[in-house]
Structure formats: C-alpha cells, structure tokens
C-alpha cells in the first residue's frame, strides 16, 4: 500500500472505482463545500477537489479538501503546475499530508487566460509559473514518497504518502502521441489516471487497445472520464470547443429530441434534457467499464452534484465498497 487511501484500497480490491468531482466556490464560505461533500459522500470512493479550475480563483484545493474530509468524504486534492513553483508545491504537499490528505492529482491546469471560457473576468494578466510540468510533478511526488527526498535532494524526516494521480486526454491532437503521453506519466509514477470526458466510445476503445498493447493498464489504474451532459447545447459546445472531446451525432440528436419534446415549455425542456443526460451518462459508464483495461470511472456532474446518487445507483455501482484500512 502506497498511501492507504480509500481510493487506493478500492482499486487494489479489483472492484471498479468511482471518483467524483467537487468544485470549490468563489467564496470564503465553507458551506457549499460541506453541502456538496454530503451529497457525494457514499456515492464515490473519493472526490476530486479542483484547483482553481478554468483559471478562476476559488477556495484552494487543499483547504476545500480538508473541509470535505471533515465531512467524511475522501478527497483527491488537485495541484496545477500553473500557480506554484516547486518550492510552493512541495511545501503545500507536506502541509496537505500533515492535514491528512492522501490522494493528489497532478495537472497542468487551464491557462490563466481561460477565465471560465470568457464567462468571468478571471486573471488573464497573471504570470504563470510552469516551473515543472505534470510529468515532473508526478516524479516529485514519487521521490518525496518513495525516497523521502525533496526534488532538490534534501531529506524529509517524514515523507508524504500520496496516492499519485494524473490526467490523460486520450483523444486530443496529436492523437498518436497520446499513448506516449500516458506512458511518460506512468513511468514518472502515476498510480492512477483520470481521463478527459469520453463520449466517443469507439475512439476511446481504439486508444485503450494501444494502451493494453503497451501494458500500461497493468501499471496504472485508468479511470474513464464521464461528463454528465445537461443539455443539447452543452454537448454541442463540448463537441466544438473542448479539446480532445468529440461527441457522436446520435448523442446530440437524442438530447435535441428530448429538448424538442417539451415544445415551448422551457422548464419541461430542462427536465427532459437532464433526464436524458443522466441516461446517457449511465450508458457511457457501462460502456467505459466494459472496455478492457479500465479500472473505474471518474464522473463529473459539473455544478450538478445532486445528479450523482441517481447515476451511481442506476449504473449498478452502489453501494460503494467498504474496505477497512489494514
């Protein structure tokens, strides 16, 4: 056992793991984190606490992760390479471990110009850091944990024991290099991988075949990403604008049909699309889990945490395994 986290225990048990996502608020009020944590608790093995996602200032991942943890939800703290140099990263990792956190997902982070895809002011004029990249950050965590050393070589009296994660976008350009990207993260020390949202099952399965041929599925636990669709508009947006995400036409048509069935009734259109979205998510979960080499799902019900219990139950993934610490 590398970290002893609940997520690690579930993965080691061989049962399909379920992770969720919790986005901290743009507020100093902890109640939203507490509320979301209590909705997700019991319906996932751990929940990612995003680190200023879309390059917008929110409660920090570590602080929100501790709040979630106090509510009984196991967090996966996230750490972007955008905002910290290796000194701040390692200091925060020691602090996070001292506070009891045991999972960490390493990501590059949305560029500071993103500002919630232009919906918020954000901080597009901020200086970015990128002292190290994701691969290097994974390596730093591993070195701290397994060698008890800082990146620079100084010893750590007590090493932080993190279950180390990284993200993977299987279907972004350059597509034939994506398996190499994954290989490098695994070689650096990624224990688990959460993928970008998958709608194109055929495309994902083709990439997974390459991954199996490389043996990577045995060296890391790949959790397939599911982004729960909320509307036809959201699916169209993701298809056209989100890197590495393509949405097959039949899925967009299903959602459009659900919307059209409501006629001019906007409230009903929303309800019908949400119901269809949940159905689509459940189907995608099953298809992803049926893909050889996949060890779980990472379900993102973005700003829609209340959808999680129904989805997890409908997918046959409830109750979540209870594996006591050894």
């Amino acid at each position: 056992m590398k970290s002893g986290s609940n997520l690690e225990r579930v993965i080691l048990s061989g049962q399909p793991a379920v992770t969720a996502e919790l986005g901290p608020p743009m507020s100093a009020d902890p109640h939203e984190v507490i509320k979301k944590a209590n909705i997700l608790k019991g319906y996932c093995d751990a929940a990612n606490i995003t680190d200023c996602q879309t390059a917008v200032v929110r409660i920090s991942s570590i602080a929100a992760a501790v709040i979630a943890f106090q509510q009984g939800l196991e967090p996966v703290m996230q750490m972007t390479c955008r905002d910290r140099n290796r000194i701040a990263m390692q200091a925060d990792l020691l602090g996070a471990a001292a506070l009891g956190l045991r999972n960490c997902l390493c990501i590059a982070g949305d560029h500071q110009k993103f500002s919630a895809a232009g919906r918020l002011k954000g901080h597009p004029g901020a200086k970015n850091v990128y002292d190290v990249d994701t691969c290097q950050l994974v390596g730093i965590l591993k070195k701290m944990r397994d060698e008890g050393k800082q990146e620079g070589g100084d010893p750590l009296e007590v090493a932080p024991k993190f279950f180390i994660g990284a993200s993977w976008t299987p279907m972004a350009d350059p597509i034939d290099f994506r398996p190499i990207n994954l290989m490098k993260k695994v070689n650096a020390g990624a224990d688990f991988i959460q993928t970008q949202g998958i709608y194109d099952i055929a495309g994902f399965r083709s990439q997974m075949e390459t991954i199996r041929n490389m043996g990577l599925h045995e060296r890391t636990a790949i959790l397939g990403g599911i982004i729960v669709p909320k509307s036809a508009m959201m699916l169209k947006y993701m298809d056209s604008s989100v890197a590495g995400v393509s949405v097959p036409k039949p899925l967009i048509e299903r959602m459009t049909k659900a919307k059209d069935a409501a006629g001019d009734d906007k409230k009903k259109a929303k309800e019908l699309q949400e119901a269809e979205g949940i159905k689509i998510a459940v189907e995608l979960i099953q298809q992803v889990l049926e893909t050889p080499g996949v060890r779980g799902v990472h379900i993102q019900a973005i700003e829609w945490e209340s959808a999680m219990p129904g989805i997890v139950k409908a997918a046959g993934l409830y109750p979540r395994p209870n594996i006591p610490e050894a």
């Binding site: 949305d110 990249d133 691969c135 972004a172 350059p174 190499i180 490098k184 890197a243």
Partner: peptide, 17 residues
Amino acid sequence: KTLMNGPCGGTNKGKCE
C-alpha cells in the same frame, strides 16, 4: 505552458488552448 514532456490536454486541431 513551457511544458517539457509533451502536449497538455488543451491541443485543439493543432492549436493552443
């Protein structure tokens, strides 16, 4: 992002995010 080990997930049709 001055990445040293390959592209991030933001590559879209060969362009930067």
